[in-house]
């Protein structure tokens, strides 16, 4: 009897340790990211880092503003495309799709979510960049817009699947109430269903936004990678993540440049954490309200 309890307690102890692993890992990541990154601020002020327009590692000048602006532009561009498309597709799947179409579109979305980002990048490098060059009469198609387009495709699955869950859980009686008053499908969708599901839809958009901010591989191949302040979607640029990827190879370990690149990583890290918590809060609230 005592032996059995001993065994059970040992296993319980091990499993408890395992269950804290996610937390521990998160903590280690924070420690190492900040330990390396924050060293930069012994040399450069936070303001100079965030708002400085010049990034010249050879002279130890680290202003991340152009990267920040590129990241914002790329993300906004991606959302501009994927939010209307994603919500429409979610509405389609839940509200009007015949079964055969649903059985085609759902796996397609799962597959889109599963394609590695590097493949999106290579596809965009050759197709999207080329498609953009001619109509906009550009010297190179490697632009913020190209990155936005490929990111939009990449975040569609997140936006669709979360919006879809949320639209799906709008009680049927709301729809019936609307139909019973002579509303058309579209009136019911646009005036009752989507507004009732808005929390979940916003949560999906927020998560998609986080993914776009953090994406690296697809962006680095198509954005052109020039360290100047982009003025429009048709300029080339360089995002926080692509800068890290491109420059880490040249940075000497422990140098200021190395620290500065970690600092670049802290920005999307913090933003994405906040966004993730925000969206899970929105989703849990929605659930509790319908229960």
């Amino acid at each position: 009897m005592g032996k059995r309890l001993n065994l059970e307690n040992t296993i319980r102890g091990i499993l408890l340790l395992f269950s804290t692993a996610a937390l521990v890992i998160l903590a280690i990541i924070v420690v190492f990211l900040f330990k390396e990154g924050l060293m930069l601020f012994q040399h450069t002020s936070v303001t100079d880092f965030l708002f400085g327009h010049k990034w010249i590692p050879a002279e130890n000048i680290y202003g991340a503003f152009p990267f920040i602006v590129s990241t914002i532009l790329v993300t906004l561009g991606a959302l501009l495309i994927s939010v209307p498309l994603g919500i429409s597709c979610a509405v389609f799947l839940v509200e009007i799709s015949p079964r055969w179409a649903r059985e085609l579109v759902r796996p397609a979305i799962e597959l889109l979510a599963g394609i590695p980002s590097i493949i999106y990048g290579v596809f965009a490098l050759i197709i999207v960049v080329d498609v953009l060059r001619v109509p906009f009469n550009l010297a190179t198609g490697e632009t913020i817009l190209a990155a936005s387009i490929i990111l939009a495709i990449m975040i569609l699955p997140i936006i669709i699947s979360i919006s879809q869950d949320s639209i799906d859980s709008v009680p049927r009686i709301y729809r019936e109430g609307s139909y019973a008053m002579g509303a058309t499908d579209w009136q019911t969708i646009s005036k009752v269903v989507v507004p009732s599901a808005r929390r979940g839809i916003i949560a999906g958009v927020i998560l998609g936004c986080g993914r776009a901010i953090g994406e690296t591989m697809a962006v680095v191949l198509v954005i052109g990678n020039v360290e100047k302040l982009p003025l429009s979607l048709l300029d080339s640029g360089e995002t926080l993540t692509s800068a890290i990827l491109l420059e880490m190879g040249e940075a000497v370990i422990g140098s200021l440049h190395y620290n500065a690149l970690f600092c670049l990583g802290i920005i999307p890290f913090l933003i994405v954490l906040v966004l993730s918590m925000l969206s899970s809060r929105l989703i849990t609230k929605r659930v509790s309200r319908f229960e």
Binding site: I173, E176, S178, Y179, A180, G182, A183, T184, V192, S196
Partner: peptide, 20 residues
Amino acid sequence: VVSLRRRVGMVFQKPNPFPM
């Protein structure tokens, strides 16, 4: 159907006001 339902209104078992 749409104008039919406008002329023939319906009240359901469970009160279902919209979340507005």
